[in-house]
Amino acid sequence: MKADRQGQRPMTSDGTGELPPGTILAVDDDPKALGTFETYLKGAGLDVLTAMSGEQALGAVRRASPDIVLLDLSMPGMSGREVLRELKARKETSDIPVIIVTSVGQMAEREKAIHEGADDFLTKPIGRRELLMRVRTLLRLRRLHRDLERTLSSLHELEAARYAGGAAHDLLKGPPSRSPLATILIVEDELLERAIYADLLRDHGYTVLTVPTAHQALELLRFQKVDVILVDLVLPGMSGPELIERLKIVTPDTPVIVVTGHPSSHNAVTALRLGAFDFIIKGFKSEVMLHAVKRALEKRRLELQTRTLLYELKAKVAQLSERQP
Protein backbone atom coordinates (compact mmCIF):
# COMPACT_ATOMS: atom_id res chain seq x y z
CA MET A 1 0.00 0.00 0.00
CA LYS A 2 1.15 3.54 -0.71
CA ALA A 3 0.46 6.30 1.82
CA ASP A 4 -1.47 9.26 0.43
CA ARG A 5 0.40 12.54 0.85
CA GLN A 6 -2.54 14.50 2.23
CA GLY A 7 -3.77 11.96 4.76
CA GLN A 8 -6.43 10.52 2.45
CA ARG A 9 -7.20 6.83 2.13
CA PRO A 10 -4.25 4.70 0.99
CA MET A 11 -3.50 3.99 -2.64
CA THR A 12 -3.13 0.37 -3.65
CA SER A 13 0.25 -0.57 -5.00
CA ASP A 14 -1.19 -2.43 -8.01
CA GLY A 15 -2.78 0.66 -9.54
CA THR A 16 -6.39 -0.08 -8.62
CA GLY A 17 -6.57 3.41 -7.15
CA GLU A 18 -8.01 4.87 -3.99
CA LEU A 19 -11.01 3.02 -2.60
CA PRO A 20 -13.88 4.96 -1.02
CA PRO A 21 -14.69 3.94 2.57
CA GLY A 22 -17.25 1.20 2.91
CA THR A 23 -18.41 -2.00 4.56
CA ILE A 24 -18.36 -5.24 2.57
CA LEU A 25 -20.32 -8.36 3.51
CA ALA A 26 -18.62 -11.52 2.20
CA VAL A 27 -20.88 -14.59 2.06
CA ASP A 28 -19.37 -18.03 1.43
CA ASP A 29 -19.59 -21.42 3.14
CA ASP A 30 -15.85 -21.97 2.51
CA PRO A 31 -13.74 -20.53 5.37
CA LYS A 32 -10.70 -20.34 3.09
CA ALA A 33 -12.57 -18.18 0.58
CA LEU A 34 -13.80 -15.91 3.37
CA GLY A 35 -10.23 -15.58 4.64
CA THR A 36 -9.09 -14.52 1.17
CA PHE A 37 -11.82 -11.89 0.93
CA GLU A 38 -10.95 -10.53 4.39
CA THR A 39 -7.25 -10.33 3.61
CA TYR A 40 -7.73 -8.47 0.33
CA LEU A 41 -10.48 -6.11 1.52
CA LYS A 42 -9.10 -5.25 4.94
CA GLY A 43 -5.71 -4.73 3.33
CA ALA A 44 -7.34 -2.06 1.18
CA GLY A 45 -8.74 -0.27 4.24
CA LEU A 46 -12.32 -1.55 4.02
CA ASP A 47 -14.51 -2.86 6.82
CA VAL A 48 -15.46 -6.51 6.33
CA LEU A 49 -18.32 -8.64 7.66
CA THR A 50 -18.60 -12.37 6.95
CA ALA A 51 -21.39 -14.93 6.79
CA MET A 52 -21.23 -18.67 6.03
CA SER A 53 -24.86 -19.21 5.04
CA GLY A 54 -27.74 -17.45 3.34
CA GLU A 55 -29.61 -17.05 6.60
CA GLN A 56 -26.58 -15.50 8.30
CA ALA A 57 -26.15 -13.17 5.34
CA LEU A 58 -29.71 -11.81 5.54
CA GLY A 59 -29.32 -11.28 9.27
CA ALA A 60 -26.05 -9.39 8.75
CA VAL A 61 -27.66 -7.20 6.10
CA ARG A 62 -30.54 -6.30 8.44
CA ARG A 63 -28.15 -5.44 11.28
CA ALA A 64 -25.38 -3.63 9.42
CA SER A 65 -26.71 -2.51 6.01
CA PRO A 66 -23.41 -3.12 4.15
CA ASP A 67 -22.39 -1.13 1.10
CA ILE A 68 -21.70 -4.22 -1.04
CA VAL A 69 -22.49 -7.93 -0.71
CA LEU A 70 -20.04 -10.51 -2.11
CA LEU A 71 -22.28 -13.54 -2.56
CA ASP A 72 -21.22 -17.09 -3.37
CA LEU A 73 -23.89 -18.86 -5.46
CA SER A 74 -23.17 -22.41 -4.29
CA MET A 75 -24.04 -22.75 -0.63
CA PRO A 76 -25.87 -25.50 1.28
CA GLY A 77 -29.32 -24.65 2.54
CA MET A 78 -30.38 -21.23 1.28
CA SER A 79 -28.60 -20.72 -2.04
CA GLY A 80 -26.91 -17.57 -3.21
CA ARG A 81 -29.64 -16.91 -5.77
CA GLU A 82 -32.30 -17.21 -3.05
CA VAL A 83 -30.41 -14.65 -0.96
CA LEU A 84 -30.12 -12.39 -4.01
CA ARG A 85 -33.85 -12.56 -4.74
CA GLU A 86 -34.64 -11.82 -1.09
CA LEU A 87 -32.36 -8.77 -1.07
CA LYS A 88 -33.74 -7.37 -4.31
CA ALA A 89 -37.36 -7.96 -3.24
CA ARG A 90 -37.06 -5.81 -0.11
CA LYS A 91 -37.30 -2.08 -0.58
CA GLU A 92 -34.75 -1.36 2.16
CA THR A 93 -32.10 -3.65 0.64
CA SER A 94 -32.90 -3.60 -3.09
CA ASP A 95 -30.30 -0.90 -3.82
CA ILE A 96 -27.38 -2.72 -2.13
CA PRO A 97 -24.98 -3.81 -4.91
CA VAL A 98 -24.41 -7.55 -5.07
CA ILE A 99 -21.34 -9.16 -6.64
CA ILE A 100 -21.97 -12.84 -7.23
CA VAL A 101 -19.07 -15.27 -6.93
CA THR A 102 -19.13 -18.32 -9.17
CA SER A 103 -16.98 -21.21 -10.30
CA VAL A 104 -15.82 -21.64 -13.88
CA GLY A 105 -18.60 -24.13 -14.74
CA GLN A 106 -21.50 -22.01 -13.46
CA MET A 107 -22.09 -19.84 -16.53
CA ALA A 108 -25.84 -20.57 -16.66
CA GLU A 109 -26.32 -19.83 -12.96
CA ARG A 110 -24.35 -16.61 -13.30
CA GLU A 111 -26.53 -15.43 -16.17
CA LYS A 112 -29.67 -16.17 -14.16
CA ALA A 113 -28.30 -14.22 -11.19
CA ILE A 114 -27.46 -11.21 -13.36
CA HIS A 115 -31.00 -11.32 -14.75
CA GLU A 116 -32.36 -11.41 -11.18
CA GLY A 117 -30.56 -8.23 -10.18
CA ALA A 118 -26.90 -9.00 -9.45
CA ASP A 119 -24.69 -6.01 -10.23
CA ASP A 120 -21.46 -7.77 -11.13
CA PHE A 121 -19.72 -11.14 -10.90
CA LEU A 122 -16.37 -12.69 -10.06
CA THR A 123 -15.09 -16.12 -10.99
CA LYS A 124 -13.06 -18.26 -8.59
CA PRO A 125 -10.16 -18.26 -7.97
CA ILE A 126 -10.51 -14.59 -7.04
CA GLY A 127 -7.63 -12.25 -7.87
CA ARG A 128 -6.91 -9.32 -5.58
CA ARG A 129 -6.68 -6.70 -8.32
CA GLU A 130 -9.94 -7.72 -10.01
CA LEU A 131 -11.78 -7.86 -6.68
CA LEU A 132 -10.66 -4.39 -5.61
CA MET A 133 -11.45 -2.87 -9.00
CA ARG A 134 -15.02 -4.26 -8.96
CA VAL A 135 -15.53 -3.17 -5.36
CA ARG A 136 -14.16 0.32 -6.02
CA THR A 137 -16.51 0.84 -8.97
CA LEU A 138 -19.60 -0.24 -7.03
CA LEU A 139 -18.67 1.78 -3.95
CA ARG A 140 -18.39 4.90 -6.08
CA LEU A 141 -21.72 4.17 -7.76
CA ARG A 142 -23.38 3.57 -4.39
CA ARG A 143 -22.05 6.86 -3.09
CA LEU A 144 -23.37 8.51 -6.24
CA HIS A 145 -26.77 6.87 -5.67
CA ARG A 146 -26.93 8.26 -2.15
CA ASP A 147 -25.86 11.73 -3.21
CA LEU A 148 -28.42 11.66 -5.99
CA GLU A 149 -31.21 10.54 -3.65
CA ARG A 150 -30.45 13.47 -1.35
CA THR A 151 -30.26 15.85 -4.28
CA LEU A 152 -33.52 14.59 -5.75
CA SER A 153 -35.25 14.94 -2.41
CA SER A 154 -34.03 18.51 -2.05
CA LEU A 155 -34.97 19.36 -5.63
CA HIS A 156 -38.46 17.96 -5.22
CA GLU A 157 -38.95 20.01 -2.07
CA LEU A 158 -37.68 23.15 -3.80
CA GLU A 159 -39.86 22.54 -6.85
CA ALA A 160 -42.92 22.00 -4.68
CA ALA A 161 -42.20 25.22 -2.80
CA ARG A 162 -41.65 27.16 -6.02
CA TYR A 163 -44.85 25.98 -7.64
CA ALA A 164 -46.83 26.55 -4.48
CA GLY A 165 -45.49 30.12 -4.45
CA GLY A 166 -46.63 30.85 -7.97
CA ALA A 167 -43.54 30.04 -10.00
CA ALA A 168 -45.58 27.62 -12.09
CA HIS A 169 -47.75 30.47 -13.29
CA ASP A 170 -44.66 32.37 -14.44
CA LEU A 171 -43.45 29.40 -16.44
CA LEU A 172 -46.78 28.90 -18.16
CA LYS A 173 -47.72 32.47 -18.95
CA GLY A 174 -46.11 32.56 -22.40
CA PRO A 175 -43.38 31.42 -24.80
CA PRO A 176 -39.81 31.24 -23.47
CA SER A 177 -37.56 34.26 -23.78
CA ARG A 178 -35.21 32.15 -25.95
CA SER A 179 -35.96 32.13 -29.66
CA PRO A 180 -39.38 30.56 -30.23
CA LEU A 181 -37.90 28.73 -33.21
CA ALA A 182 -35.93 26.29 -31.01
CA THR A 183 -36.49 22.75 -32.29
CA ILE A 184 -37.26 19.87 -29.94
CA LEU A 185 -37.05 16.21 -30.97
CA ILE A 186 -39.27 13.78 -29.05
CA VAL A 187 -38.36 10.08 -29.14
CA GLU A 188 -41.32 8.24 -27.60
CA ASP A 189 -43.00 5.05 -28.82
CA GLU A 190 -46.36 5.69 -27.09
CA LEU A 191 -48.54 7.63 -29.53
CA LEU A 192 -50.67 9.38 -26.90
CA GLU A 193 -47.73 10.53 -24.78
CA ARG A 194 -45.85 11.64 -27.89
CA ALA A 195 -48.84 13.78 -28.92
CA ILE A 196 -49.27 15.27 -25.43
CA TYR A 197 -45.61 16.32 -25.19
CA ALA A 198 -45.63 17.73 -28.71
CA ASP A 199 -48.83 19.77 -28.15
CA LEU A 200 -47.48 21.20 -24.90
CA LEU A 201 -44.22 22.33 -26.46
CA ARG A 202 -45.83 23.68 -29.62
CA ASP A 203 -48.26 25.70 -27.49
CA HIS A 204 -45.23 27.41 -25.95
CA GLY A 205 -43.58 28.40 -29.20
CA TYR A 206 -41.30 25.48 -29.96
CA THR A 207 -40.92 23.65 -33.23
CA VAL A 208 -41.44 19.95 -32.47
CA LEU A 209 -40.39 16.80 -34.34
CA THR A 210 -41.51 13.36 -33.16
CA VAL A 211 -40.38 9.80 -33.88
CA PRO A 212 -41.33 6.50 -32.20
CA THR A 213 -37.97 4.69 -32.33
CA ALA A 214 -34.29 5.31 -31.72
CA HIS A 215 -33.36 4.26 -35.26
CA GLN A 216 -35.75 6.83 -36.74
CA ALA A 217 -34.29 9.49 -34.46
CA LEU A 218 -30.76 8.78 -35.67
CA GLU A 219 -31.92 8.80 -39.29
CA LEU A 220 -33.68 12.15 -38.83
CA LEU A 221 -30.60 13.69 -37.19
CA ARG A 222 -28.56 12.96 -40.31
CA PHE A 223 -30.21 15.92 -42.05
CA GLN A 224 -32.06 17.83 -39.30
CA LYS A 225 -30.49 19.89 -36.51
CA VAL A 226 -32.35 20.11 -33.21
CA ASP A 227 -31.75 22.05 -30.00
CA VAL A 228 -32.99 19.56 -27.37
CA ILE A 229 -33.88 15.85 -27.50
CA LEU A 230 -36.44 14.16 -25.23
CA VAL A 231 -35.82 10.40 -24.97
CA ASP A 232 -37.97 7.71 -23.37
CA LEU A 233 -35.82 5.15 -21.54
CA VAL A 234 -37.91 2.21 -22.77
CA LEU A 235 -38.03 2.03 -26.57
CA PRO A 236 -38.56 -0.84 -29.01
CA GLY A 237 -35.42 -2.12 -30.70
CA MET A 238 -32.57 0.12 -29.63
CA SER A 239 -33.18 1.16 -26.00
CA GLY A 240 -33.14 4.67 -24.59
CA PRO A 241 -29.73 4.25 -22.88
CA GLU A 242 -28.24 2.88 -26.11
CA LEU A 243 -29.65 5.84 -28.02
CA ILE A 244 -28.18 8.32 -25.52
CA GLU A 245 -24.73 6.78 -26.05
CA ARG A 246 -25.12 7.13 -29.82
CA LEU A 247 -26.36 10.71 -29.50
CA LYS A 248 -23.20 11.69 -27.63
CA ILE A 249 -21.31 10.71 -30.79
CA VAL A 250 -23.75 11.93 -33.43
CA THR A 251 -24.70 15.26 -31.83
CA PRO A 252 -22.59 15.80 -28.70
CA ASP A 253 -23.65 19.42 -28.21
CA THR A 254 -27.38 18.69 -28.03
CA PRO A 255 -28.78 18.33 -24.49
CA VAL A 256 -30.75 15.12 -23.88
CA ILE A 257 -33.62 14.99 -21.39
CA VAL A 258 -34.66 11.51 -20.33
CA VAL A 259 -38.34 10.79 -19.74
CA THR A 260 -39.00 7.72 -17.58
CA GLY A 261 -41.97 6.03 -16.01
CA HIS A 262 -39.74 4.39 -13.40
CA PRO A 263 -38.70 6.94 -10.73
CA SER A 264 -35.64 5.25 -9.26
CA SER A 265 -32.17 6.49 -8.48
CA HIS A 266 -30.77 3.65 -10.61
CA ASN A 267 -32.51 4.97 -13.73
CA ALA A 268 -31.42 8.50 -12.91
CA VAL A 269 -27.80 7.45 -12.41
CA THR A 270 -27.85 5.45 -15.65
CA ALA A 271 -29.19 8.41 -17.62
CA LEU A 272 -26.83 10.97 -16.12
CA ARG A 273 -23.82 8.67 -16.38
CA LEU A 274 -24.49 8.23 -20.09
CA GLY A 275 -24.50 11.98 -20.56
CA ALA A 276 -28.13 13.04 -20.24
CA PHE A 277 -28.64 16.65 -19.16
CA ASP A 278 -31.71 15.95 -17.02
CA PHE A 279 -34.48 13.44 -16.46
CA ILE A 280 -38.17 13.83 -15.69
CA ILE A 281 -40.71 11.31 -14.49
CA LYS A 282 -43.84 10.51 -16.49
CA GLY A 283 -46.99 11.89 -14.94
CA PHE A 284 -45.20 15.21 -14.42
CA LYS A 285 -46.94 18.56 -14.40
CA SER A 286 -46.53 20.44 -17.67
CA GLU A 287 -44.36 23.11 -16.08
CA VAL A 288 -41.75 20.50 -15.13
CA MET A 289 -41.09 19.64 -18.77
CA LEU A 290 -41.13 23.31 -19.78
CA HIS A 291 -38.63 24.14 -17.07
CA ALA A 292 -36.33 21.25 -18.06
CA VAL A 293 -36.39 22.28 -21.72
CA LYS A 294 -35.76 25.92 -20.84
CA ARG A 295 -32.71 24.99 -18.74
CA ALA A 296 -31.40 22.67 -21.47
CA LEU A 297 -31.66 25.45 -24.04
CA GLU A 298 -29.86 27.84 -21.74
CA LYS A 299 -27.08 25.28 -21.23
CA ARG A 300 -26.74 24.85 -24.99
CA ARG A 301 -26.68 28.61 -25.51
CA LEU A 302 -23.95 29.12 -22.90
CA GLU A 303 -21.81 26.29 -24.29
CA LEU A 304 -22.04 27.64 -27.83
CA GLN A 305 -21.29 31.15 -26.57
CA THR A 306 -18.26 29.90 -24.64
CA ARG A 307 -16.98 28.04 -27.69
CA THR A 308 -17.36 31.16 -29.84
CA LEU A 309 -15.49 33.27 -27.31
CA LEU A 310 -12.67 30.74 -27.09
CA TYR A 311 -12.41 30.67 -30.88
CA GLU A 312 -12.27 34.47 -31.02
CA LEU A 313 -9.66 34.52 -28.26
CA LYS A 314 -7.45 32.01 -30.06
CA ALA A 315 -7.78 34.00 -33.28
CA LYS A 316 -6.79 37.20 -31.45
CA VAL A 317 -3.76 35.51 -29.88
CA ALA A 318 -2.71 34.24 -33.30
CA GLN A 319 -2.99 37.75 -34.77
CA LEU A 320 -0.88 39.23 -31.98
CA SER A 321 1.74 36.52 -32.44
CA GLU A 322 1.98 37.27 -36.16
CA ARG A 323 2.54 40.99 -35.48
CA GLN A 324 5.49 40.40 -33.18
CA PRO A 325 8.90 40.71 -34.91
Rank of each mutant, 00 (worst) to 15 (best):
K294Q: 14
Q224N: 08
R246A: 14
M289D: 00
F284M: 13
S265N: 00
A195F: 08
D253Y: 06
D189W: 05
V256T: 11
L247G: 06
K248M: 11
E245G: 15
I184M: 04
L233V: 10
R246G: 00
V226G: 04
K282T: 10
P175I: 07
E190P: 02
L209V: 03
V250S: 09
V228C: 08
R202E: 15
A217P: 07
H266Q: 14
P263F: 00
F284T: 09
T260E: 03
T183V: 08
H266A: 15
P176M: 09
L181M: 12
I244E: 04
V258P: 01
V234W: 06
L302D: 07
G205C: 10
V269P: 01
L302K: 10
F284C: 00
R300V: 04
E287W: 07
A271G: 09
E245I: 04
V187R: 10
G205F: 09
K285R: 14
T183M: 12
H215I: 12
F277M: 06
L290G: 05
Y197P: 01
F279K: 00
L233Y: 00
A268P: 03
G240F: 02
K294Y: 12
A182E: 12
A271F: 02
A214D: 12
L247V: 06
I244A: 08
D189I: 09
E298S: 14
D203N: 15
Q216T: 08
K299H: 14
D189F: 03
P255F: 06
T260Y: 00
R295M: 14
H215A: 15
H204V: 07
A198E: 13
L302S: 09
I281D: 03
E190T: 13
E193H: 10
V293H: 02
V231P: 02
F284V: 08
T260N: 03
E193M: 14
P252H: 09
L297K: 06
T213G: 11
L181K: 13
F223C: 10
D189S: 15
V228N: 07
I244C: 09
V234R: 14
Y197T: 06
L290C: 10
L297E: 09
S264A: 05
K225S: 15
P175A: 15
E188A: 04
L243N: 10
